[in-house]
Amino acid sequence: MPWEDYISDSLLGPASIFRPRVLPITDGEPRPTWSIIVPTFNSGRFLEQTLRSVLDQDSGIAQMQIEVVDDASTRDDPAEIVRRLGKGRVTFYRQPANVGHIRNFETCLNRARGHLVHLLHGDDFVSPGFYAALERGFNADQNVGAAFCRHAFVDSESRFRSSSALERVEAGCLENGLARLAEEQRITTPSIAVRRTVYEHLGAFDERLICSEDWEMWVRIAAQYEVWYEPRLLASYRMHEDSNTGRHRRLAQELEYSRQAIAIFRGYLPKQFRYAARRARNIYASVALTTAEEFWLRGDIEAMDAHLKCALRLSCSPRILMRFCRLFSKRRRTVSSK
Rank of each mutant, 00 (worst) to 15 (best):
Val287Ile: 15
Ala223Ile: 09
Glu302Asp: 14
Gly100Ser: 06
Trp215Lys: 09
Val287Lys: 14
Ser191Phe: 04
Arg323Ala: 11
Arg220Asn: 14
Ile17Phe: 11
Phe205Lys: 06
His248Met: 11
Phe328Cys: 04
Glu67Ala: 10
Arg111Asn: 10
Glu230Ala: 09
Ser315Pro: 03
Ser59Trp: 04
Pro14Ser: 13
Ser337Thr: 12
Thr74Lys: 06
Ser35Leu: 07
Thr291Phe: 00
Arg247Lys: 15
Glu4Arg: 15
Val38Asp: 03
Ala223Glu: 10
Glu106Lys: 06
Arg21Ala: 13
Gly177Lys: 03
Asp27Lys: 08
Pro2Ser: 13
Gln185Ile: 03
Val68Lys: 00
Thr107Arg: 14
Arg94His: 09
Arg278Phe: 10
Asp71Ala: 09
Ser35Ile: 05
Val38Gln: 01
Ala277Leu: 05
Asn98Pro: 00
Ser156Val: 13
Asp206Leu: 12
Tyr131Ile: 02
Arg168Trp: 00
Arg331Asn: 02
Arg259Lys: 01
Val22Gly: 00
Leu12Val: 07
Arg333Glu: 14
Ala285Leu: 08
Ser35His: 08
Ala235Gly: 11
Gln57His: 01
Thr107Leu: 10
Gln185Val: 01
Ser329Arg: 15
Leu51Thr: 02
Ser337Phe: 09
Gly137Thr: 07
Glu226Val: 02
Ile210Asp: 13
Tyr229Gln: 12
Leu174Ala: 01
Arg250Ala: 13
Asp9Val: 05
Gln185Asn: 15
Ser10Tyr: 11
Leu269His: 04
Thr189Ala: 10
Ala311Gln: 03
Gly246Tyr: 05
Asp206Ile: 12
Ser243Arg: 04
Asp77Trp: 11
Met304Gln: 14
Arg89Gly: 00
Ala97Asp: 07
Phe92Cys: 10
Gly246Asn: 06
Tyr225Ala: 05
Tyr275Pro: 01
Ile81Lys: 05
Ser73Tyr: 04
Thr189Asp: 03
Glu167Asp: 06
Arg323Phe: 04
Ser191Thr: 05
Leu55Trp: 07
Tyr199Ala: 07
Arg159Ala: 12
Arg52Met: 08
Asp70Lys: 05
Ser212Gly: 11
His101Gln: 10
Asp77Glu: 14
Leu308Pro: 03
Arg313Ser: 12
Gly267Cys: 13
Ala112Ile: 07
Glu254Gly: 01
Phe160Cys: 10
Arg249Ala: 13
Cys108Arg: 02
Thr197His: 07
Glu241Asp: 15
Glu135Met: 00
Leu178Arg: 02
Asp214Trp: 02
Phe130Asn: 05
Glu294Pro: 00
Leu297Asn: 10
Leu85His: 00
Lys309Trp: 03
Leu234Glu: 03
Met304Pro: 02
Ala303His: 11
Arg319Asp: 15
His307Leu: 03
Trp218Cys: 07
Met322Asp: 13
Arg247His: 06
Val198Trp: 00
Leu289Met: 02
Leu23Met: 07
Arg220Phe: 06
Pro39Val: 08
Ala280Pro: 07
Arg274Asn: 09
Ala146Pro: 01
Glu207Gly: 12
Phe273Asp: 15
Ser127Pro: 01
Ala288Gly: 10
Glu213Trp: 13
Ala288Trp: 07
Ala285Pro: 06
Val82Gly: 08
Ser243Leu: 05
Leu12Glu: 09
Ser317Met: 06
His115Gly: 13
Ser164His: 06
Val90Lys: 04
Leu181Gly: 01
Arg266Cys: 06
